[in-house]
Design a protein around this nucleic acid. Structure first.
Lengths: 217, 217
DNA sequence: GATCATTTGTCAACAGTGTTGACAAATTGC
DNA sequence: GCAATTTGTCAACACTGTTGACAAATGATC
């Protein structure tokens, strides 16, 4: 009963998703979203208690794109690697949204789906419940955490990004060799390639560590 | 020449540090800081071009607390471990500030100091420049990234935190065993202990992976 | 010593944010 | 028909960062 609703939770989330996709997450404000929906901004508060409630839901919505199926012939490590890379790719595209999602697990549908897949693969790898939980936490912290770090720069165009990285590298090169010998020595290797390749390398190191547990028992 | 300055960059930063320490990072606004300094909020813009400039500087200020010296007899791995744990501890205490610092390297004094120490230890461990850079990136992404994730909850009192974790664990336990078998099976091991111990375990796994590189050449 | 440029702080104002509380419209149950 | 309930609208509050005009206070120059 009551006045018939013209708005709905899912409709609002869908509109919010479009807004974020087209104009970035900074555009996700009550007034802009109300405008897009043709309703008063405060009408949103009838369906979400607070704006970050809505953001949480939109954040999970973006995780739909993460395909967690294991491909034929792929072992646990290959599959986990692919899921983490994909998860990162999605998170990195939505800077501040990623920060919001990562602030606390949303424990909404898509996040649960990804968790299940990761734990499934760890089980397939023969890890104990305890080992699997530890490995899962480590993978999530690295993947989501590094996405939160890299997201801001990821919104910039590719050449701006490259220039930024080479600027940083140069800064380390030009440090005083007396005070910062190690930085100066390693500088040519810092911030080479893309943030994605650096994450890939980090993920491989972590997976090496996790694999080693497998044999230890 | 010109009108004599009653404010200074360092004085403003110091006041901002106190403000953040006493009332949390949310209190770091132009008006509140101006109030604390007994000046007009817009006077700050004579010393910082923008508020996030100021935040960047305050963020680096907090990193002073990270002691990077190697203790006698400690090998590279032990020292790196201690630095990362300490870095995390500082970052976690300042939720949103950590997010700001991690958004882009501040490349200010204290951050450079920590970088130098990590690279120094990796050199001591016999890693090549390329290996050291990769390991450094991985360590920073895990440490700073996971701090950004865990920071929001870290501000809550300990028993609230414990309750939150056990709530999450229960949520995974109560999933449908048909749809989410792996989650249900591993649930009793999820979110056990503190976020700090989970990070420690993740760091150890990563360090295992990094150590393995040492022997590969 | 007066004048001038320059620096620095003050003030009012703008455009934006989330959110609340009173009010009106539109439905269902009695 | 009346009451209860839901839902959207509207005005308003308390904030936010930031800008541009203005005034005060200095050192340098004529």
């Amino acid at each position: 009963m009551g006045r018939p609703a013209t708005l709905s939770r899912s409709g609002i989330i869908a509109a919010a998703e479009v807004l974020v996709r087209d104009h970035g997450v900074a555009a996700l404000t009550a007034r802009r979203l109300g405008n897009a929906l043709g309703c008063d901004p405060t009408a949103l508060y009838r369906h979400f208690t607070t704006m970050s409630d809505l953001e949480r839901e939109v954040g999970d919505r973006f995780l739909r794109a993460v395909d967690v199926r294991a491909l034929d012939g792929d072992d646990w490590r290959t599959t986990i690697r692919r899921i983490c890379l994909k998860l990162r790719r999605v998170q990195v595209r939505q800077p501040r949204l990623a920060a919001l999602v990562s602030a606390a697990p949303t424990r909404l549908a898509n996040e649960m789906r990804i968790t299940e897949a990761l734990l499934r693969e760890l089980d397939r790898g023969g890890f104990s419940g305890d080992q699997a939980a530890t490995a899962y936490h480590a993978l999530i912290e690295l993947t989501v955490g590094s996405a939160a770090i890299d997201a801001p720069l990821a919104t910039q165009p590719a050449d701006t990004r490259r220039r930024t990285y080479s600027d940083w590298r140069r800064e380390y090169t030009e440090l005083s060799p007396a005070e910062s010998p190690a930085s100066v020595a390693v500088a040519p290797h810092l911030y080479l390639g893309s943030a994605d390749t650096r994450f890939e390398a980090a993920l491989d190191l972590l997976l090496d560590g996790i694999s080693a547990q497998q044999r230890i028992q």
